[in-house]
């Protein structure tokens, strides 16, 4: 591959620029050029071409197949498939459990991050590594482990049953699995922001007479707001679509403990491809919405940093 810089230099030597060509080649100052500054590095066309081709083949075209399949239904059929009583119960469970799990992670994620960033305690590096376990552990493994723990005669479940709490094979179990899945999203989003919180502000608040609780509630927590929201949204979005860790602990009773992704698989097994696509399209719509919200929150938080 011929280096770009060298080739351009040769061209320049062959055609020394006159005043006219210089004025022509310079864009009007007021107009913002489309390509701000041409990078001198080669390979742009090739790498961007490969990127766009693979992205289209792996992600965009297959995703469009779902919309196209769902559009083979009439509007009435689509509503009947995507918003049947059973489907609505499944969305309610998937969204509801993901929301509750994200709230739980929102609370304990802040505590965990606070302890990891601010305190020293024995075993801290192990705890720090363990927080990422849900990223590394296959979801099915988490699923069977949690189902075993929280079943009525499991290690934890046996203490919950006398209290009248039925954890496994219930919406509670779904929430437990989604809490497992979502935790690192909250902690790892909060961590860098909490680390960068400047001590000056806290000291200023303290020296102005604010109590520790006041400082935390009015100075620290508001500063964490955007990162907290981002982590919450990431955990929620992941929870809505989660399948592997949930099906073992959920019980999978229609209308009661059946999550939306499972309903897609059931439709598929009954060869109701268009119905499966309709439910998938609703879930995709929610995913896109979550993605937009996350991006908006991040853009909003950048304005303050």
């Amino acid at each position: 591959m011929a280096p770009f810089g060298a080739r351009r230099r040769i061209l320049d030597d062959d055609h020394p620029m006159t005043a006219e060509t210089i004025s022509m080649s310079r864009p009007p100052a007021a107009r913002r050029p489309l390509f701000r500054r041409r990078s001198a590095l080669p390979g742009f066309g090739l790498t961007l071409g490969v990127t766009l081709t693979i992205l289209s083949l792996i992600v965009l075209i297959p995703l469009s197949a779902i919309a196209i399949k769902a559009s083979s239904l009439s509007p009435a059929q689509f509503v009947a498939a995507a918003f049947s009583e059973r489907a609505i119960a499944a969305y309610r469970l998937s969204f509801g459990a993901a929301f509750v799990a994200a709230v739980i992670n929102g609370v304990f994620g802040v505590l965990t991050t606070w302890a990891l960033v601010r305190y020293d305690f024995p075993g801290k590096s192990v705890v720090n590594a363990l927080v990422d376990l849900p990223f590394a552990l296959p979801t099915a493994v988490a699923g069977i482990a949690l189902a075993t723990l929280y079943s009525p005669n499991g290690w934890v479940g046996q203490y919950l049953t006398p209290l009248g709490i039925k954890a496994a094979y219930n919406p509670v179990g779904v929430t437990i699995a989604l809490t497992f899945i979502g935790l690192p999203f909250v902690v790892r989003t909060l961590e860098p922001v909490m680390r960068d919180l400047s001590a000056d502000v806290e000291e200023a608040a303290a020296s102005l007479g604010a109590g520790r609780i006041d400082t935390i509630l009015r100075v620290i927590l508001p500063a964490l707001g955007p990162a907290w929201l981002t982590g919450f949204a990431l955990a929620f979005a992941r929870g809505v679509g989660e399948y592997g860790s949930v099906i073992f602990i959920a019980g999978n009773m229609p209308y009661k403990s059946e999550i939306a992704p499972l309903l897609i698989i059931i439709q598929l097994e009954q060869f109701e491809y268009a119905n499966a696509a309709a439910i998938a399209l609703v879930m995709l719509g929610v995913s896109f919405l979550m993605l937009l919200i996350i991006n908006a929150v991040q853009a909003w938080s950048r304005r303050f940093s």
């Binding site: 779902i66 992941r238 499972l262």
Partner: peptide, 22 residues
Amino acid sequence: LITLIDLPFSVSPVVAGLMYVM
């Protein structure tokens, strides 16, 4: 483009499987 590359993070794995079946 970066958002599109991120897209698979927010698509349910089941939906991902379904689209290849389609």
